[in-house]
Amino acid sequence: MIMEEIIQQIVNGVSLGSIYALIALGYTMVYGIIKLINFAHGDIYMIGAYVGFALTTFLKLGFFPALILSMVICAILGVIIEKVAYKPIRNSTRIAALITAISVSLFLEYGMMYFFKPDTRTFPSLLPDKQIKIFNTDAVLDIKNVYIIVVTISLMLLLQYVIHRTKVGKAMRAVSLDRDAAQLMGIDINKTISNTFAIGSALAGAAGVLVGTYYNSINPLMGVVPGLKAFVAAVIGGIGIIPGAVFGGFFLGITETTISSLGGSLYKDAVAFAILILVLLLKPNGFLGKDVKEKV
């Protein structure tokens, strides 16, 4: 019985962690490149879910076409947001940049509410309702969990390839290390920033579609809490560090499901933030981050 419970919780934790990790990747990439906490990132995830909803409900697309199309649309949206909202404030103070990001977030949330009604929508069931028993125990693996985990891991591998093996990825790494030096080496900064937003937003869009199919319900404020949690995940792993976001996402997902299964579900959000504060105090640069000291 105990063993089954544990396996079940791990499956749930990894699924939830996948979602956090996908969103956290975008946070971390954007922070790495322009040092901005993109508060609107959680809302791109929400829009990804809505696009997925529209594509599957009205155009009757299947899971994979909807997933890919939704990623493309979110990528475009991410680039537009960067060009319209963040480019003008690139040289402003941190506080101005942060408030701008919050304003974009509010605009997306309440814009969606205004145009598409604040009600919760039912996401169509796209995946077969099949459950697999694990190792002849009573623990079940929902086919949806399999989809979430497999899609997430494939996207992460793809991202790893893009970042380390392609020109686009190398430019991104160069700009996040030293923007001025990268520029002197002939890297187009604006294009690289756009690419970063495109990739990060596409991942958030994917997370939106995955969550829509998993929970079958979406609403305009669905991005707020997961957005914050994903940010927490990115900080736990070490913001600006890509493997850190993945680690932080899974860590947070598994911790949360564990706490819920121990009867603390009411406090799971508080625990997430408490972990955040603890990590910031004990390891301010995250688990995978390096210590940097200001030069005097």
């Binding site: 408030i99 701008t100 304003s103 977030s105 509010l106 605009f107 309440y110 814009g111 509410m113 205004y114």
Partner: peptide, 11 residues
């Protein structure tokens, strides 16, 4: 439209 306009003003 309250929050949408508020967002635009902030921006």
């Amino acid at each position: 439209l309250r929050m949408v306009i508020y967002a635009v003003i902030l921006f």
